[in-house]
Design a binder for these strands. Structure first.
Lengths: 339, 339
DNA sequence: CTGAAAGCGCTAACAC
DNA sequence: GTGTTAGCGCTTTCAG
């Protein structure tokens, strides 16, 4: 039933040696094969429905054509957008993508890195932020072991020490958002800051606050879960504390939090933007269908994926590329100056 | 620099034979090893930071621990939800997921199946609908070759001939939707039917129409692209043709089309549901943030993924499991009977 | 319970 | 240009 056809079968069928068959089929670099023989081998292969065994090739060549991709959660639109870019780019390089999800668990992350090492992945791309004070010794060690093996590694989102990274300019984006909102006439803000220990959230929060300077003020900056529910709860709390009445705009450190806040505002009978303006961060594509359109800072997910693959496949070194973000003003933060 | 540690190194370090080291580390089924030696080997492995080479194991054992997953587009929320379930389930079975995207190209699909065969994948899950009249000879042949090799295969969405499948009951769901809308008092419908040759779209359209019977009528059933733009354009056209005024509700054969239609209605200054009611199909999670909440038929993406993996890993046979869909009534189709 | 040795399917020196 | 052959790192009979 499981009658595998091997290269020797093809060689025999074509009446050539194993080596010739191998060269004919994959076109080895140095040695070349007479066209006539190539044809004979190709035909024999087709006749027998031969498929090269990638595991055997990997073994003989000492390297695979697998690129490992680690994300927190592939169902998250941020990661799935990145994954799409990674898959596309990897395929263009003739690589297969081995996908694993870390569930935002640092221990698991290290474990999966080890798994990639076992698989002899050609390169590995790690997406997704980590916590600031996180004990990442295990991760660092796994990464080091991986790198020592000659595996290309790239991190997406926030730089990982010692690893080529393509970082999102969260600070810059947040600063640009602050500037835009100030320009539109907003002065008093509430910030849904996300988890305090999360680098991405922190950068966005601080970037916003710093850029505000003395041109604006922050009535409240609350710690929240980095989720829809986090944003939802936070807004309810702000309303309950009476802070909301005193605020021009609520700024969330990511889009899904902003959407949660939007839902909460609606539940409270508050209009967005009439009663409170709202901005997010991330630029996930599904925002398209939300009304009012959400003011946000777009992160170029596609570019992150593409560049990470290139980085992982290139000369390693401790590069940190940075990609910029763009402010997109939507209906959720109308121009106050006209009023 | 790339000094790989092999099992022989470990064996030497532990002072045992290669065979014993192998048995000690992976705990081979039949033969067992004296605990003391196991410990010595384990320690040696740890000391040398030994990692088994998965490609070599695959080669020696004749099988990999890879599960191939084929989707049209991993950035699509439908597929990313399925992928999340597949990855989770596969990991629980100790399998790695090799992800590839077909870009909705049948030729590419066959090609990727061949690739999975080369990779000696243990099992393959194919998600995503195909066209009805599609020349799928290449696909069928590739699948057959794969199956002959003993690789478990499962298809998600619509059954593939000769392949274990977990199908979505699109007809039933559409019929249930029709019944619900009729109950709510809707009578005249416009259907955004999707591409006529696409099985999924066709089943939903026909299921809806059949269930309507003589209790309702269809003013218009238009062919559209299965995308946001498709829904958008279709609604504009309906409005232009004056059909919309004559219709109680617009029913789209998938959610993103419904969202496109929603956007188009807004552009035309039409209120949903005041001026026209709207329903979709699919139940993608990002609908949560759309106002009004969209009436839709939810497809259990997670269950699809989980069951497909089980199917692919189980006894093959020509099984077709079917998963049901649930109608969820939202604000986009209010109860007309009160009015 | 342990070891020696024969492969798994392919590539890459190395000869001819 | 083509063929021979020695591995790649591991598992697994088969002897002991």
């Amino acid at each position: 039933m499981v009658q595998r056809v091997t290269l020797s079968d093809v060689a025999r069928e074509a009446g050539v040696s194993l080596a010739t068959a191998s060269r004919a089929i994959n076109g080895s670099a140095d040695r070349s094969v007479r066209p006539e023989l190539v044809e004979r081998v190709t035909e024999a292969a087709a006749r027998l429905q031969y498929t090269p065994d990638a595991t055997a090739q990997a073994m003989a060549r000492g390297r695979t054509t697998t690129l490992g991709l680690l994300v927190h959660d592939i169902a998250d639109p941020y990661f799935s957008a990145i994954a799409a870019a990674v898959v596309r780019t990897a395929e263009a390089e003739g690589l297969q993508v081995s996908l694993a999800t870390t569930q935002n668990d640092p221990a698991r992350e290290a474990q999966l890195i080890d798994l990639m090492r076992r698989q002899r992945a050609r390169a590995v791309v790690i997406a997704g932020g980590r916590s600031a004070g996180e004990r990442s010794d295990a991760l660092a060690e796994s990464l080091a072991a991986l790198g020592r093996q000659g595996v290309g590694i790239a991190a997406i989102g926030q730089p990982v020490p010692g690893v080529a990274s393509v970082a999102v300019d969260n600070r810059g984006g947040a600063a640009a958002l602050a500037a835009s909102l100030l320009d539109l006439g907003y002065r008093r803000f509430a910030v849904l800051g996300g988890p305090t220990d999360r680098v991405t959230a922190r950068d966005r929060r601080e970037g916003f606050l710093d850029a505000l300077g003395d041109r604006g003020s922050v009535a409240s900056s609350v710690e929240t879960a980095f989720t829809w529910e986090g944003g939802h709860r936070a807004l309810l709390r702000l309303a309950q504390d009476g802070v909301l009445a005193d605020v021009d705009a609520v700024v969330a450190t990511n889009d899904v939090m902003a959407l949660g806040a939007l839902a909460a505002a609606r539940e409270l009978g508050l209009g967005v933007p009439q009663d409170v303006a709202l901005a997010g961060f991330g630029g996930i594509s599904t925002l398209r269908d939300v009304v009012p359109t959400l003011t946000t800072v777009t992160v170029p997910m596609d570019e992150l994926g593409v560049r990470a693959v290139r980085l992982a496949l290139g000369d390693q070194g401790d590069v940190v590329e940075s990609v910029g973000c763009d402010v997109v003003i939507g209906g959720s933060t109308p121009d106050l100056r006209g009023a």
